[in-house]
Nucleic acid binder design. Structure first.
Lengths: 123, 123
DNA sequence: CATAATCTACGATATTTATCGTACGACAAA
DNA sequence: TTTGTCGTACGATAAATATCGTAGATTATG
């Protein structure tokens, strides 16, 4: 599977969040991030469909698109690349960065502690 | 500062790791990842120098290049984008993914626990 | 010195990605 | 039925990236 470009990833993210949607809906969400004209969004989504990144239902006048791939399918590759280039190959560095730079609730911290406990047991 | 492309990021990562190096050295490291001809690497590094991503010492016949920006300067933007697109906007998801998908030593887990303790105190 | 090896410079082109305009069909409202 | 709105299709082009070849200078080697 060919990996999505930056602009395509933005559209995928919107569809992952909203679920099946029309071009109009995606376009409006996209425009909150950056300005593009409608036909650009349309064209991009058509290309993405050809690439197999999206699927669409054309039974109505207004086509409904949905993501054909899941975020899960990209996470590993992307995180690997980020870790290897920006964090000196150390996932630990990335984790420390993410925790240090984002407000994390007590509940979330608890979840991490739990995972750590589990990992320690496995050793 | 204009953000580096994917190919440029590979070269930056090499220079961050090796420190100041000749084009030849970078090229050889790069070829372990993907095949390119020497002049492609050279040209890319020349362009990167114009963009301000690299600096070079031309006092010798063989020019020596070094990174003009630090990984730190890109981490936040890149991680934000990854979190927002691939991890539903939740840094926690990224952290869990990184921990779950990579072997992490006991020492590293300790470091994370320590950071968590500190974060909890700050609340 | 002659020849080969190593480098830089740089233009040309290929490839990929992104953007936009025009045409035209469907449909609803005046 | 005429007009306006909303939608798709799709070609054209722009812009950004990546790749490569050739020329010529410098340095090392026989």
């Amino acid at each position: 599977m060919k990996k999505p470009t930056d602009a395509e990833l933005d559209i995928l993210a919107i569809l992952w969040q909203l679920g099946p949607s029309s071009v109009r809906t995606v376009h409006e969400a996209l425009n909150e991030q950056r300005e593009v004209v409608y036909t650009t969004t349309l064209k991009t989504m058509q290309v993405m469909t050809e690439k197999g990144l999206l699927r669409r239902d054309t039974s109505q006048k207004t086509h409904i698109y949905e993501a054909a791939i899941q975020a899960k399918m990209l996470q590993e590759d992307v995180v690997d690349k980020v870790v290897n280039t920006l964090f000196a190959g150390s996932p630990l560095n990335l984790v420390m960065h993410a925790l240090g730079n984002n407000p994390t609730s007590r509940q979330d911290l608890d979840k991490i502690k739990e995972l750590i406990k589990k990992l320690e047991k496995e050793k």
